[in-house]
Write a protein that binds this DNA or RNA. Sequence first.
DNA 1: GCCAACGTTGGC
DNA 2: GCCAACGTTGGC
Length: 153
Amino acid sequence: MNYWLFKSEPDEYSLRDLAAEPGRTGRWDGIRNYQARNFLRDRVQEGDGVLFYHSACRLPAVVGTAEVVRPAYPDPAQFDPESPYFDPKSTAGEPRWFCVDIRWQDEFARPVPLAEIKADPELQEMVLVKQGRLSVQPVTPGQWRHLLELGRG
DNA sequence: GCCAACGTTGGC
DNA sequence: GCCAACGTTGGC
């Protein structure tokens, strides 16, 4: 059982978009960064906890949590020429990109903004603080607990 | 919209 | 395999 932080641009796919999916379950796809891909493919497991983070928006923040309900499988979008995530170099036999399915779990009573995370002495070791751009990143149990506490408002 | 940080590409 | 050029991410 591990904890993760997943980033999404809310204009593309927000926590509420996930909540509106059938079964509150959606595909986490479109990851096209090798470091993030490796975490998804090799480390993310069913039952893992996910901090849902909104990026590239008015208030970058952790807004809630989700649970991994299906571990890595090839991202179908890489084979679809119509998709912006199409990758002509990827083959069915040797897929390059992976996705997982996640289920909505909770929306925080209060979003926890990036600025607050950066200012929190307990959260200085978060990958979010140290390496801003990674879209799938590990979170420690202590960081997870602390974020949930902050999100209770 | 700017720009810093960082990842990827491709010539050599 | 180096590295310059270029593209992307994402905070501000």
